[in-house]
Design a protein around this nucleic acid. Sequence first.
DNA 1: TTGAAAGCGGTACCAG
DNA 2: CTGGTACCGCTTTCAA
Lengths: 328, 328
Amino acid sequence: MSEKRPTIVDIARLLGVSHSTVSRAFTHPQLLSPRTVELVRTTAADLGYIPNRSAQALSTGRPGVIGLLVPDITNPFFPPMIRAAQRVAERRGISVYIGESDNDPERELALISRFERQVEGFIIASSRLSETALRGATERVRSVLVNRDLAGVPRVLLPAGEELRRAIADFADHRAHGAAGLAAGGRVAYVGGPHRSWSQGERRAAVEEACREHGVPVTVSSCEVGTYRESHRIGEALEVAAGDLVIAFDDVIAHGLFDALTARGLRIPEQVMVLGCDGALPVETSPRLPTVRLAASGAGRRAAEMLLDAADPERVELPASLVRWPLS
Amino acid sequence: MSEKRPTIVDIARLLGVSHSTVSRAFTHPQLLSPRTVELVRTTAADLGYIPNRSAQALSTGRPGVIGLLVPDITNPFFPPMIRAAQRVAERRGISVYIGESDNDPERELALISRFERQVEGFIIASSRLSETALRGATERVRSVLVNRDLAGVPRVLLPAGEELRRAIADFADHRAHGAAGLAAGGRVAYVGGPHRSWSQGERRAAVEEACREHGVPVTVSSCEVGTYRESHRIGEALEVAAGDLVIAFDDVIAHGLFDALTARGLRIPEQVMVLGCDGALPVETSPRLPTVRLAASGAGRRAAEMLLDAADPERVELPASLVRWPLS
DNA sequence: TTGAAAGCGGTACCAG
DNA sequence: CTGGTACCGCTTTCAA
């Protein structure tokens, strides 16, 4: 396998032209006579010529690759983002290195220094780095952040706060009017995610603010790892009563809570409502859980475009949508 | 950002040695005096030297990258595989290009030709290519297949057949003894996946054979796209009665069927059992569905090792395990 | 044990 | 419009 593939020199020799001509036929065809371009291109195709990216990278200084860093590829939120970014890159002839930090800042930093020399830039999703570390990295390599709000660095944010506030407002409203089996004393229980991330802060703050504003009591707890299994355990002990609204950091946690609460005999959504976040699970439950659906694909696409088109709009927010919400 | 990073020439000049010496300090330290090696290495570290992979690739002819092709990155089966392969590659200083074919043979082929010149080899998971096309590709570039059984090409297989047979044997057994609410007339309904893949054939064949062998009537149908939504719709119309066993191609389909059947008033698993495959969902249902859990991570790891260590054992099967199965 | 020099496969500048 | 040539950063003979 892998016979020696033809280079521009082979093509040049075959055509009796200089290899610069062959190169130009691909990179600056305007400088050449249409006939020459045509000739070069067809023989190149005949020979099965494919440019050597390493050589191009070396001579242009542009590697033709971007790095995409995620904390956890098995979190269903990321694959759609990866896919979208990849599609954009592909259309521009650019490849994507995938790097997974495993939620570990050390590993994230290691990945960055491992790749920084080889890529045109990074898309760093849900970075676990400290502000200092992240700023240092982004100063060395062109980067676009996803779900991290660092002033001065291009970033795409998927805030869920607005929709969470809406949900809580609806909840407070129904509660006040004693509608639909909601007891007057209903509370909100927020179960946060495992990491200190921008999303974490944003969602929690929104929940707390909205509850304060609407005079709804709220309790806050957190996961350590964020798996279904763990949140199920949390749900077994969670202080919840009929009339409450349980808000989870994400859909996986929401599902664990949902199942645990159901097992405790609480009827959902009639007695207790469970609201998740992300909207990227490949499966649903029955009854289907409401969620704040985030534009993961949109974020991947936008981030890639910002990175590759070097566009300026440096802080982009993509709207979320509250779906399957029974109170609106 | 991106100041000019130091090259071996910078280090060489600083030390008053030739740049070949610097190069050797990294690639063939045995050839140098320990003092020189030490000297070069420390000043390299001081300067923050990072080798330029493109240059290395160009001069050695080895790109230091492998390509990992999957049909659908949002299918929860693949991320653990990607992660595992990535870890192995990383440990060897090799990066991973991720490519998604979107279940489209054309796209898969396009990705292959786009990458083949830039990678040391491919891991091709669940290829959708015809045998001819795939053989052509694997002749040009070193490749390891996952879940595709092409003689002569190194491959890692995750067969589910044995465990499916076991499940059906259990089912037939219980049915014969009229145990646990299983009506004597119970049947097996197999709902296949959307693609003609090796796994598809393997699972379906196993189900049909085992049913024939045990004298259990079986019906076979198929998904067109394989989403939760679609399989839910299929479940609404599926011909099922109390005492039946429903086997789905994967867990996503199983969940759709499960919810639809539950909505039809069938109690699961008391009246109807639903068995999935893969065991990679980030969430579970309640009651938790049994599944044939495949070693996705193991496959990623093995495939990467086979590719990078150029080892010979060319056909590897990784065992599956039937989990949460109520009849064993 | 080290240096000099020739590539690897392209790009891009300078002439003509 | 096209050819000649230097160069990108590193590896690898070949000599010394």
